[in-house]
Design a protein around this nucleic acid. Sequence first.
DNA 1: TTAATGACCTATC
DNA 2: CGATAGGCCATTA
Length: 105
Amino acid sequence: MEKKSTFELIYDVVRQIPKGKVATYGQIARLAGNAKWSRVVGYALHANPDPANIPCFRVVNRFGGLSPAFVFGGINVQADLLRADGITVRDDNTVDLDVFMWNGL
DNA sequence: TTAATGACCTATC
DNA sequence: CGATAGGCCATTA
C-alpha cells in the first residue's frame, strides 16, 4: 500500500534535519525533488503521522517563524524543544535562519 | 466526482 | 529596489 508518496519524500528530508538546525518548507520541498511542494510540505507536516521521526518543530517557514498550530502539545513547547536543541528562538517564536538555517547536507 | 482549501514559495512588473 | 500576482501538489468535504 505504501508506494513512496510525496509525503514519504518530504518526511525523508525532514528526518535528515540535523539537531540544532532548522529547515524551511521551500528548502525541504526543493530537497524532496520539486520546489513546488512547499504547500504539500506544510500539509505533510500538518498531517504529521509520525511525529516521533518527523520533528515538525524543526521546520519553519521562509521567515523563520514557527507554525501557528503545533501538534505536539503547544507552540510554546516547540520553542522549548528548539532551545533544547541549542537553537535561539526569538520572542515571537522565530528562529535565526542566518545561524540555524540547515544547508541541506 | 467535483470543488475548495491549505503549517508555502517563486517569479515577474 | 520594492511590491504584487500566480502557481503547484495533495488532502478533505
